[in-house]
């Protein structure tokens, strides 16, 4: 693999993680709503999507705002990724690999915890359930460096 190819792959990876995080940060609450409607409430995809559309701006639901709020830590992480990976020297494959592993594990952690929280909150509705949507972004901010540190540690072992 030559330097140019390596640089191009790193750029592609960075852009995928960057936009993937932003779009999933926005989309996970909506995907979770649709998934729970389909799997728990036996609705078709069309019905579930219609339900989502109805509740996007409905008082007491505000699924649009929930998505925006949820996306905040994802956007911050995406911007971090853009600079952290985007400015990494492509010729230093070990460093790029370690940084990539850190970003990847942190991203998987963010996505996994968000998806699990949203699905569980909708699956087992509770009067205080909406609080989860408030605390989740804060929790994600704390989880981000931990996930990155774990990934970076694993990356150090792999990319020597």
């Amino acid at each position: 693999m030559n330097g140019q190819e390596s640089s191009s792959r790193l750029t592609t990876f960075t852009v995928i993680v960057y936009w993937g995080c932003i779009l999933l940060g926005l989309g996970i609450p909506w995907f979770a709503t649709i998934a729970v409607d389909i799997l728990k409430h036996d609705q078709s995809l069309v019905q579930a999507t219609h339900q989502l559309q109805l509740h996007l701006f409905a008082p007491g639901y505000n699924l649009f705002l929930i998505a925006i709020f949820n996306a905040v830590p994802f956007i911050l992480f995406a911007v971090f990724t853009l600079f952290h990976l985007g400015l990494a020297p492509p010729e230093d494959r070990a460093l790029c690999g370690r940084r990539g592993a850190g970003v990847l594990v942190a991203a998987i952690g963010l996505i996994g915890l968000t998806a699990w929280t949203h699905v569980m909150t909708l699956w087992y509705p509770d009067a205080q359930g909406a609080l989860a949507f408030l605390f989740l972004p804060v929790l994600l901010m704390g989880l981000m460096p931990i996930g990155y540190a774990i990934g970076r540690g694993v990356g150090t072992l792999i990319f020597r």
């Binding site: 790193l10 936009w19 926005l26 956007i75 911007v79 853009l82 600079f83 990976l85 985007g86 400015l87």
Partner: peptide, 21 residues
Amino acid sequence: MTGRQIGLNLGLLAVLMVLLG
């Protein structure tokens, strides 16, 4: 990535945020 590529991605994010707003 070049500075221009980073700027472009940040710009597109700003556009997305304005659109959502």
